[in-house]
Design a protein around this nucleic acid. Structure first.
Lengths: 245, 245
DNA sequence: ACAAAAGTGTTTGACATACACCCATGT
DNA sequence: ACATGGGTGTATGTCAAACACTTTTGT
C-alpha cells in the first residue's frame, strides 16, 4: 500500500467496428494501424495512444479514435484493461475500448479521401474474421471485442449504431445477421424489434425492386443499453459501461 | 501516438463481497480500509494499492486482496477501469476488481483474530447497502460492483462462491435472496438450479429442527460463467473476464 | 401473371411463476 | 400430533422459433 508507483505506462486502444458491403450481405470490418517503430514494427495494431494528462479515459478513447478515422463513434464502451507483464517489452497497461461507426459516415470519409488524395497512410481496414497476426496481444483483444459485440447485440439495442439514421427492418436484420453469422427469421425479427419499442416508424418507404419497406429511425430517448445504477457518462452521450447484463 | 506517457499512476482496488449473518438471513458485507494519509485522510476506502512492476493485473488484485483479508477469493473478476481526471488530486487510473469470499473462511479468519488479538488495524467490514461516504469515487464504484453482482447472479453460477464447499439448496437460495433483495420460490429455485446441472448432490444431509436437507457441492468441471472465446485466466483459476452478458 | 420481398397469423415448445400438495424430521 | 421446512406436481402466462399465408410492388 505504501510503495510508490513503479514505471508503468497507460495506453488506450480502441477496437472500431463498422460494416462493409460484401458478397454475402455485409461484413464486420475494423481499421488497423501499421506500426512504424520498434516493438512489432511492420505489424498491424489497434489504433490508440498514450493518455493526455488532462483527459478522462472515455475522452482519450474518443480522441485516438478521431485521430485514426476522423469520425465520431455512434457507440463507445470500455472493453477491458489488459496488463499482463509480458504483453509488451516495456510495462504497459492498455485500457481498451470498442466502438461502432455508422456505415454511411465511413463511406463518406472514404470517398473524401479518394477524391482529394489524402488517403491516410498506415491505416487500413480489415475484415474482422480474417485478420493477420497483430502486434502485442491485439489478436486476443479483437477476439474478445467480437465476443462482446455478438453477446451484446442479443440483448441491447446497439445494432443501429452501424446504420444510417433511417433504415428498413431488413437493413437492421442484416446487421444482426452479419454480427451473429447466421440467418434470422424476418417475421420473428420484426416482432422482437417492434416489441422492444426502440424504433420509431416513419412515413417514408424505401422503394426497391419489390414491395417498398417502411423506414424506421432509432428512438433517441431510449438508452442504448441497460447500465449501472450510476450512469455518469463523462463526455459523449453514447458512452456506456460494460457488461450489461 | 508519438507523445510520451505523462505522469499517470496505476492503482488496483477490489470490492470484496462476503455474506454476514443478520436478522433477516444474511447481508452482503465488504471490508474497507481507513485512510491514514492525505487525500481523504480519515475516510474509508476500498482496499488496494499500486502495481508491482512484475505482476499482472489479476495478480495485483489478488495480492492486495490477500494483504487486506489474508484470504484467497473464490471468485475474482475485473470490474472496470476508472480514470476521470478529477477522481483524485493526483492523476490516478484505478483498475478495479470485484471478488467473492466464502462465508466460512471469513468467519475462521475473524475468529483467529479475536483469539490471538491481532485484529487488523484500520480494516472494518460494512454492510454493502449502508456505507458511509467513501474516499475518491469509491461509493460509485461499490454501487457499480453491486449492480454487476446482482446482474450476474441471475445468469451465472457464482452464488456458491459465497458458501462453504457443501451447502443445502436453502443455503444457496438464501444467498440469491440476499443479493437480489427479494424472496424466491423454493420450488422453482430448486428446479432452476437442478436444470442448470452445476450442482452435484452428495449422500450427506444437514439435520436441523425439521426434515433433513440434502447437501450439494459445486461441480468444479463447469465454469463459473461464460467467458470470451480466449479465456486466458492468467493466475487464479477462478479469474474471469467481465460482462458475459 | 409472376417473382420476390414486406408484413401477418398461428402453432408449438421451452421456461418462469404461482401455488396446492405430500414427505420427513424434531419437539 | 403437529409445526416446519424439504421436496414434488401441476396449471398458467410469456416469449421465441418455425412456418404457412397474405400483401404490395417492379418487371
Amino acid at each position: 500500500m505504501t510503495r510508490t508507483s513503479p514505471d508503468i505506462r497507460v495506453a488506450v486502444s480502441t477496437v472500431i467496428f463498422t460494416l462493409r458491403p460484401s458478397p454475402e450481405g455485409a461484413t464486420l470490418a475494423l481499421p488497423l494501424v501499421r506500426r512504424t517503430r520498434d516493438p512489432f514494427e511492420g505489424l498491424w495494431a489497434l489504433p490508440g495512444g498514450w493518455f493526455d494528462e488532462t483527459e478522462g479515459l472515455d475522452a482519450a478513447a474518443s480522441r485516438t479514435l478521431a485521430e485514426t478515422t476522423a469520425l465520431a463513434p455512434s457507440y463507445l464502451e470500455q472493453l477491458y484493461a489488459f496488463g499482463d507483464v509480458d504483453r509488451s517489452p516495456t510495462r504497459v497497461v492498455s485500457i481498451v475500448y470498442w466502438a461502432l461507426l455508422r456505415q454511411d459516415q465511413v463511406d463518406e470519409q472514404r470517398a473524401a479521401h479518394e477524391a482529394d488524395g489524402t488517403a491516410p497512410e498506415n491505416v487500413q481496414w480489415f475484415a474482422a474474421e480474417d485478420l493477420p497476426r497483430l502486434a502485442f496481444d491485439h489478436n486476443t483483444i479483437v477476439d474478445y471485442a467480437l465476443w462482446r459485440l455478438r453477446n451484446k447485440v442479443g440483448y441491447a439495442r446497439i445494432a443501429h449504431g452501424l446504420l444510417p439514421d433511417e433504415f428498413t427492418l431488413a437493413d437492421l436484420r442484416e446487421v444482426h445477421e452479419s454480427i451473429l453469422g447466421r440467418k434470422l427469421d424476418p417475421a420473428n425479427f420484426r416482432r422482437q424489434i417492434e416489441a422492444s419499442g426502440t424504433l420509431i416508424p416513419t412515413e417514408r418507404f424505401r422503394t426497391g425492386s419489390h414491395r417498398p419497406a417502411r423506414l424506421y429511425r432509432y428512438d433517441g430517448a431510449i438508452e442504448l443499453a441497460a447500465r449501472g445504477p450510476i450512469p455518469t457518462p463523462t463526455d459523449t452521450d453514447t458512452t456506456d459501461r460494460n457488461e450489461e447484463r
